[in-house]
């Protein structure tokens, strides 16, 4: 699998060619007085997979949370799937339907069964008939390899299982873009692989993915581009091989020396 990716990738340089689905330009964000994101320019093409890394507090989560407007930016523009993010609530809801998000702490709904977690949004947001929504949910639960847990509650599952359900829950909306915010950081070591495997499978389907993670093996295997953030800025971005083997900035070098 990684062979074929590398081939298509080698044709273009950094610019993964395709139709852009996320365009961020001149974006700035503050939390009160604190300038958390500074002059972010980022274009993501359909089918592109990007890994974002950087020290804790560098603004990685805030950046991807701006893409589905869980955080508001104050300057610059963000266009997702041809919709510009403004105060227009209707448009924000439209964007959120097309953008799935997986959180560090899963955030499954504990009062609903696994199946209900997965069918809720299709039924209420997409107005899918219940039977059809359940069919779709079972299809994705099978893809993340836990169809047999459908009738349990989240509290009865292990962390790795919960995170796989969270991925399935997002996929049930058939999103165009998937955001992952440190999906394996809250997991016990023996569960990390099962979640990464599901994410690799997802990459194989051609999903557009933005993944905040420090799993560098994953980055090498599936990413088209790795972005290094520090202090609210994009410091360096490159294809995985040159990024890891030949980092340019001192801050990147220092960061890589600490985590590798």
């Amino acid at each position: 699998m990684s062979e074929s990716i590398r081939e298509t990738r080698s044709k273009d340089t950094l610019g993964f060619s395709g139709e852009p689905v996320i365009q961020i330009s001149g974006m700035n964000k503050w939390f009160g007085q604190f300038h958390v994101l500074r002059d972010i320019d980022l274009t993501v093409c359909r089918g592109e997979r990007i890994v974002i890394c950087g020290p804790s507090g560098s603004g990685k989560s805030t950046l991807i949370r701006c893409i589905n407007r869980l955080e508001e930016h104050q300057q610059g523009t963000i266009v997702v799937d041809n919709i510009e993010l403004t105060d227009d609530l209707k448009q924000i809801d439209n964007v959120r339907r097309e953008v799935g998000m997986v959180f560090q702490h899963f955030n499954l709904f504990p009062h609903l069964t696994i199946l209900e977690n997965c069918t809720l949004a299709p039924i209420w947001v997409r107005k899918t008939p219940k039977a059809e929504a359940e069919e779709i949910a079972m299809e994705y639960l099978t893809r993340v390899k836990i169809p047999e847990q459908a009738d349990k509650y989240p509290g009865q599952l292990s962390g790795g299982q919960q995170q796989r359900v969270a991925i399935a829950r997002s996929l049930c909306m058939r999103p165009k873009i998937m955001l992952f915010d440190e999906p394996t950081s809250a997991l016990d070591p023996e569960m990390i692989k099962e979640v990464l495997d599901v994410m690799v499978d997802l990459a194989d389907t051609g999903m557009t993915m933005l993944v905040v993670t420090h799993e560098m093996g994953f980055a090498r295997q599936v990413a088209h581009r790795v972005i290094f953030m520090d202090d609210g800025q994009i410091v360096e971005q490159n294809e995985p091989e040159p990024f890891f083997n030949n980092p340019q900035s001192d801050r990147t070098k220092f960061f890589l020396s600490q985590i590798l």
Binding site: N68, L70, V99, N107, M173
Partner: peptide
């Protein structure tokens, strides 16, 4: 806070997230 965020991120409107996710819990 993650409950509201997950509900909104998945596309539920404010009132849907209140009714289906937040209030029951």
């Amino acid at each position: 806070k993650g409950q509201t965020e997950a509900a909104r991120a998945i596309g539920l409107t404010y009132w849907q997230s209140i009714r289906l996710i937040i209030m029951p819990q």
